[in-house]
Amino acid sequence: MIDTLALLTSILTITLRAGASLIYGAIGETYTERSGILNLGVEGMMLMGAVTAFATAYYSGSVWLGLLVAMGVGATLAALHAFLTVTMRANQVVSGLSITLFGTGLASFLGERLGPASNNFNLVGMVGPRFSPIEIPGLSEIPVLGAFFKQDLLTYALFLLVPLAWAYLYKTRNGLNLRAVGESPQTADAMGIDVIRTRYRYTIVGGMLVGLGGAHLSLAYAPGWSENITGGRGWIVIALVIFAMWNPARAVLGAVLFGGINAVQFRLQAGGATTIPSAYLNMLPYLVTIAVLIAMTWWEALSHRIGAPAALGTPYTREDK
């Protein structure tokens, strides 16, 4: 009994930690897509966030500076996406994919160049400062729920960020305007909302959060840098946003689901209690994501719910004749 509780607590702890970067990414991408901009560059931006966060923290000794740089890098790449798709009216899918390709390549290149000379300039294998889990005395000893109180600072921050992100979107003037821009830019424009500025603003804010998600990977979840540290999490984020129906609060559910399966398969492998080849276990989170996505989309279609922002993916200009 005690053991089961301990196991559950430990699985939930890992679940939350594994889900944190996804939640940051999903909130960011939700905001971006709510403005009508689809950013498929998440994977590349996350990787760039992870590598720059770690490198900065490694040399400066400050995780906070690392965090800041990762957010800046995410914002810069997002601003590039916004320039291409909002101002130049480029195809959003193509632009996003380019940013992922560019970010993935550059992150991997930087990982092999930014390291110390002693390690042949490679960052892989270096140990730097990190956000360590902080156990809150008393609360962290509660069985199972105690998992919520043995997290790192970035995960704790989500306890605040998620409700705020939700309330901002649904309860404030800015959230109303943002949703209008994504649903009907013509209407928003006619109502005096600056569509261009709104799209830039939330694409960049989204990029900052995605960069932050990347930083969580290299500074907290799996401290250090390794090639492809995201393991495709950028893509999972995009799936999560759909799964969450563009609602930041619902994104948590998806992230916990993904993180949970990750934690369980991790446990299974670590415990050696299974004969299932590890390749299949590694696959599990992704397979479940696909299955859930299909089921969700199906269900939404059956119940005639309106999901995606109506103007998602379409550029806007006023004087279209």
Binding site: R179, E183, A190, I306
Partner: peptide, 10 residues
Amino acid sequence: HQNFMLVPTM
């Protein structure tokens, strides 16, 4: 406007 400027989901 001729085609109404309204957000259907609001």
